[in-house]
Design a protein around this nucleic acid. Structure first.
Lengths: 215, 215
DNA sequence: CCCAAATCGGAACCTCGACTCCGTTTAGGA
DNA sequence: TCCTAAACGGAGTCGAGGTTCCGATTTGGG
């Protein structure tokens, strides 16, 4: 059977609320959601090599159920990825409102570092993953991120010679690096940010090129 | 599957006619070396998920041969890793001779970035891999690297608040990041180096004694 | 040239994990 | 309450890849 029916007022809402429910049975919807949540946690904890059986067991359902909701393991992982991707994309877009261009970009990176610390799948999402659904979400994120980067450069808060991809790639190291405490993460991001800021170095780098003929 | 004879437990020179000569036959030695080289190339090209069969095929030998020389796939990979580890360790140790402490460290990182660009197993070696043989080599490298870092900090060429591990972790992003052209790699390392230099806050200013006068 | 030990080759074996199939259970409308 | 389609569980299928086994082949000393 489906998971415990946790006293949900299913009945009351039976009338006119069939919004996006293509005739799905209530418990099926609930199960799908639950599997998704458990899978996210499990993937984050053991990496995406965990057997589907493990996820099914932890979710308290049979493998068959998992597969009915998600055709393949990759589809399951993709669904999670997509969700995360959308969250950051939202965040990134929201940050375009923020006045301080530099702070906006760095805040986003900080958040991503903190998040991915627990959800290592973020990394995969950033790396290649052109799979349908995810692709769209990723594209949205990339566009937003790119805008943040360009804006920060325009505001002279970020080196003019780096690309959005450079920023992401360089940050990845801080995102991944196993488990690290807040302090370590902050310290590393600090190093990175200093390198990325136009203030301290890019300008000087330019000057340096002047007074010292390129080796 | 009843065996007839043959299964005689290694009688180690039962007939005192065989002179003790390391025991290895010339062709066996040749094969081992060849497998090692091919394996290195294949791992670098396809990653360590390639089937042993593929390596055997490309080396022109049977899987049995591969397994006689290397008990497990991991052992094979480990042998390669160990070799690489030793090479960088050598390089790192040699760089302690170099006068400019900062340049020495950055040169090592540059080399590593260039190398790992083609040999993605480097990354694995840097990440956890406490497997016997490799462990020793890794330890040697870490010690040498650590010395370089400390020396650079003493010379005020590197931020005093970063650890050797920070440096390695941060560099990893440049090491991995798929295939990238020389320019991209250099650009990213540049950002990183600027962040790593003591500069950023204030301690810096005009302390830069140019290096890069090699050869 | 001869022979036994050392090697070799690669089919067979085994484990593991993704995915399928189908009998059983449950939701929920009449 | 009753009935049927929807959903479920989980044993079973299938393929992939690591490792083993053993007859065939080679090497190298006598």
């Amino acid at each position: 059977m489906a998971r415990a029916a946790a006293a949900a007022p299913t009945k009351s809402a039976k009338s006119g609320d069939k919004a996006p429910r293509g005739g799905r049975r209530a418990d099926a919807v609930r199960n799908r959601q639950h599997v998704l949540e458990v899978a996210q946690a499990v993937f984050a904890e053991l990496g995406l090599t965990v057997p589907i059986d493990e996820i099914a067991k932890r979710a308290g359902v049979g493998v068959g159920t998992v597969y009915r909701h998600f055709p393949t393991k990759e589809a399951l992982f993709g669904a999670i990825l997509q969700h995360h991707m959308e969250l950051i994309a939202d965040h990134a877009e929201a940050l375009m409102e923020k006045a301080d261009a530099g702070a906006a970009l760095f805040e986003l990176l900080h958040t991503m570092a903190r998040e991915s610390h627990k959800k290592k799948d973020f990394i995969h999402a950033l790396g290649g993953y052109p799979t349908g659904e995810v692709k769209t979400a990723k594209k949205r994120f990339v566009a937003a991120f790119d805008a943040l980067v360009k804006r920060a450069q325009r505001a002279k808060e970020l080196r003019p010679d780096v690309t959005a991809e450079d920023v992401i790639m360089l940050s990845k190291s801080v995102f991944s690096s196993g488990e690290q405490d807040e302090a370590t993460r902050t310290r590393r991001l600090g190093v990175l940010f200093d390198g990325l800021r136009a203030t301290a170095n890019a300008v000087k780098a330019a000057k340096r090129t002047h007074k010292t003929r390129s080796s």
